[in-house]
Design a protein around this nucleic acid. Sequence first.
DNA 1: GTAGGGTTAG
Length: 463
Amino acid sequence: MDGVGVVSIVTAEEGSVVNSWMVVSDGPLWRRDLAHSRWCGLIGDARNVFDKMPHRDLASWNSLLAAYNSRSGDGTEALVLFKEMMCEGIGADSITFVIIISAIAAVTKVEYGSSIHGSVIKNGFDCYVNLENAMLGMYVKYGDMNAALTLFTEMGDRRDVVSHTIMINGCIETGFIELARDIFDRWFDKDLVLWNSMISGYVESNHPNEALVLFEKMENEEIEPDQYTVVSILSACACLSDLQYGRHVHRLILTKNMLHDVFVGTALIDMYSKCGSISDAMATFYKMEDKDVFTWTTAIGGLANFGYVKASLELFYQMENEGVNPNEATFVCVLAACRQAGLVEEGCFLFSTLVRNYKIQPKVEHFGCLIDLLSRAGLVHQADEFVKAMDPGERLVAYKTLLSACMNHSKIDLGLKVADELKRLGSEDHAVHVLLSNFYALAGEWSKVEEMRRNMKIFGQSV
DNA sequence: GTAGGGTTAG
């Protein structure tokens, strides 16, 4: 073990260290193995190491807790382990509480959250900034910005850059973008993460121009952007269709020798395709070594939006051949491509693939594409079968599509059934009443036309 | 080598 080797070198010069090392000789090596498994994401290995450890100190327990916590965002296993800790009388320190609070936030049980806040205060950890930050994060995850703001205020001078980042993100998520900016401006010791939070916040809340302005302010203050920054900025360029700025950012990435990971690559593809340069998008795609489902989906969607439906579908099959599993979003792209080009057979085939091969539960978007595709082709009975497979609460739009199709293709019998269903949904949407009224007129059902017109008056809309 | 904050597709 190299740990032992290091010790012997150290002890040759400083004999006095030997005794203190001997006392904890099994600890550091076990702990190193535990941490190593954790770093590799091998939770099972971490648990094995932990179970074999002759002496488990609080740090080992915390390490395993953190391992459970970092996986998949589900804090349940961490909470189970915490219970085990309590049963064995291990106790907990402030670090345990930080981990447990984030585990609790992940399982989103508000009642646990309030009780843990009590325990924290009881244990006298309540003015420990990392713990307070963990609690801030918990309130933000619950969407309880009032509690978060109260705590943030109480913290006073203990607030650090992390507290500010948490608050800014919470404000952005709840739509208080100006408050976020205010908190951002008031904090003078800004680090890169804080800048990135504010910039991505602008992009997420659909303020791409503000994101670009802030990015330039950041450059003026000579803060070096990283891959997180440029991904947000590229997304802003995509929103604005600003090809020139997008190219500028691409050059920046190359000249600054920035980390060119799958996020950056995918954001570049998206930017180029939304800014109208599909050739640059595809050139970027083919240059990328690591591609994930996001990368493929972005390229497939980009081609489809350009009207290159055939190329888009070919890329989809290539993706499958390369062993990358498409997801919901990928299927939205390919089904939309089929709809656009009126590819009935291929659309139906892809829909069945989605269900059978990939066991994906089709969503409104998938049904919507297929029903529109079938309806436009006049295959209204097939379309109707798919509407029936949908969740009843989501059928409104589908029935509107179908009823229009029945009108266009003069399928009165089915149209009458669809109209009944549509009426039963009791929508107050003016367009639905107009559609129904027009359909009944076409079907010669004049009493129902009158009924629809009365409805329109009841809902305060002029005919 | 124990904890808290930031990134991509429809």
